[in-house]
Amino acid sequence: MTDADPTSETVLETPPADETAVEPLALSTVETIGTDIAENVSRVIVGHEDVIDHVITALLGRGHVLLDDVPGVGKTMLARSIATSVDCTFRRIQFTPDLLPTDVTGVNVFNQQTREFEFQPGPIFGNIVLGDEINRAPPKTQSALLEAMEEEQVTADGETRGLPSPFTVIATQNAIEPNRTYDLPFAELDRFMKKLHLGYPSPEDEAELLGRTVGTHPIDELESVTDRKTLVRAREAVSQVQVAKPVRKYVTRLVGYTRENAHIGVSPRGAISLLRASQARAVVDSREFVTPDDVQVEAPVVLSHRVKTNDRARDGSDIVADALERVPVEERDG
């Protein structure tokens, strides 16, 4: 069930001391990293520049990504290319209906030699974790992810273990076959910074895509463009990007709008996610501060899956679109 990844044997670094001493990168360097990754990924993924950008900003903004689409549009390929672009531990979990929580988190195994119980880390212990077809696993297994995604730690047999840093989950979800899948718990959905849709490629892109399949698959030749430590520092830099009060207020108004106009609106965690994504977006757009434009770019993918409506004709993305159109960007005179 767990992917026999060759890197799984590498020693896992759990660096709490390391984290405090992280020195943020210069923002221009962060921007370059973002561009590099994007370029790298686009060697494998044809088109979908916006989705690639979103995944990168999520990566820089310390968020998890949920790719939701029909099978065969390159969800897994995208996740793998991202992971490959960063030189760090990549784990893959193929979710199935019989997957158990311990299959994800890891178990204590009795070591015959030392005659002690030894923790065998599960696949969740990676820097980039690909959760494939995540909605095929039952809620019990899903719940194993909750703690990991939010707090970057895992508790097994009463013992809490921190996850490596950076820790990013890129999950894919099958949008069809509703009878053989479980809906993700809302609490888990909320833990994903973004929910993205790839969609079918445009005819030109598809032609290009077909052309690339001749010979070796591009992903096999993909090389990393950055490493784990750089990514940690880049994240630190992004988290320090300035968010002025007007922008914070704008985010508050947007979130408030969804709460007033939908059954369940965006949670404060959603608002935080939006700000983090916007910070990353600002850096990618070579700015040292967040503008409402960043918020507007990020809001549809960050907020839509957190909004629940009772109205079948309108889903969360409609509400968010309304909010973006109606909520004033700037407060005008009182």
């Binding site: 503008t291 409402p292 434009d293 507007q296 973006l324 909520v327 004033p328 960007v329």
Partner: peptide, 9 residues
């Protein structure tokens, strides 16, 4: 400018 439109947009 529409209310929901940022200056740059």
């Amino acid at each position: 400018r529409r209310p929901g439109e940022s200056p740059r947009a």
